[in-house]
C-alpha cells in the first residue's frame, strides 16, 4: 500500500494529547455546568464541543443528511432534559454518543418497520460504560470516502459495522440492541468488510 494512502486513512488529525489540551478549558466549563445541573449553561457548551461529532455519528449511522440533522437535534434536546433532571454524567462525549446510538436505532427501526425492536433506556441512566473513547478524526477526504462506502452498504450492515468497530460493542451487546442473533451479526460484518474495502479501493482510498 502506498504510504500516503495509509497516512490518509490513519488520519492527519492532531495527536490526541494536543486535542485534549486544546479542549480542556471548554471541558472544565462543561463539567462545571453539569455538576451544577445548569442545563441552560451546559447546552451551548455541549453543542460547541460535541455537536459535529454527534451529527457526524448520526449521519453515518442513518446514511441520510436530513435524518442525521433531525436525530442529532433530538440527542441534544434529550441531553438538555436529562441534565435538567439531574442526570449524573461522567464522560460527556460517551454519554452523548450513547444517546445518539439509541435514537439512531429508533429512527432506523421506525424507517424499516420491520420486526426488529430496539430497546431504549431511560436517559438518566448512565450510558458511559459502553461508548468508545475519543479517537482522532480522519482527514476529510478519507472520511468522506468512508462515508460514501458506508452509505453504499445496506442500512443493517452499515449499522452493525459501526456498532462493532466505532462503538466497539461485542456482538452479544449488538444483539441485545437489534434483536439479531450474534452469529448472524458476525456473518453480516464478515460480508460487509470486503465490500467496504473494495469500495475504498475503487475510490483510490484503499485502507
Amino acid at each position: 500500500m502506498p504510504e500516503e494512502r495509509a497516512v490518509a486513512m490513519r488520519g492527519a488529525a492532531p495527536a490526541p494529547s494536543a486535542r485534549v489540551a486544546d479542549g480542556e478549558p471548554e471541558d472544565r466549563r462543561i463539567e462545571a455546568a453539569l455538576a451544577a445541573g445548569d442545563a441552560q449553561a451546559a447546552l451551548p457548551l455541549l453543542m460547541d464541543r460535541h455537536a459535529s461529532s454527534v451529527y457526524a455519528y448520526c449521519r453515518r449511522m442513518l446514511g441520510v443528511d436530513a435524518d442525521g440533522d433531525d436525530v442529532s437535534q433530538i440527542v441534544f434536546m434529550q441531553a438538555f432534559e436529562a441534565i435538567r433532571r439531574g442526570a449524573r454524567v461522567d464522560k460527556v462525549r460517551a454519554w452523548l454518543l450513547g444517546i445518539a446510538r439509541h435514537r439512531c436505532l429508533d429512527r432506523l427501526a421506525g424507517r424499516r418497520r420491520g420486526p426488529v425492536l430496539v430497546a431504549t433506556e431511560d436517559l438518566e441512566r448512565a450510558i458511559d460504560a459502553d461508548a468508545p473513547a475519543e479517537a482522532p478524526a480522519l482527514d476529510p477526504g478519507a472520511s468522506q470516502a468512508l462515508d460514501e462506502c458506508l452509505d453504499a452498504l445496506g442500512a443493517r450492515s452499515r449499522v452493525v459495522v459501526l456498532l462493532r468497530f466505532h462503538d466497539q460493542l461485542s456482538y452479544e451487546a449488538i444483539s441485545e440492541l437489534t434483536g439479531d442473533r450474534p452469529g448472524a451479526l458476525r456473518v453480516r460484518v464478515a460480508r460487509a468488510l470486503p465490500a467496504l474495502r473494495g469500495c475504498l479501493e475503487k475510490k483510490g482510498r484503499a485502507p
Binding site: M1, A6, M9, R10, G11, A13, A51, S52, S53, Y55, A56, Y57, R59, R60, D65, D69, P132, E134, A135, P136, A137, L138, D139, P140, A142, S143, L146, D147, V161, L162, F165, H166, Q168, L193, L196, R197, L200, A206, P207
Partner: peptide, 20 residues
Amino acid sequence: AGQYSRLAAALAQDSSRPLP
C-alpha cells in the same frame, strides 16, 4: 489482513463532517 486492520481502525475514528 493489514488492510482490514487499518479499515477497522478507520471505522473506530470519528467522522468529520461540518454541521448543517
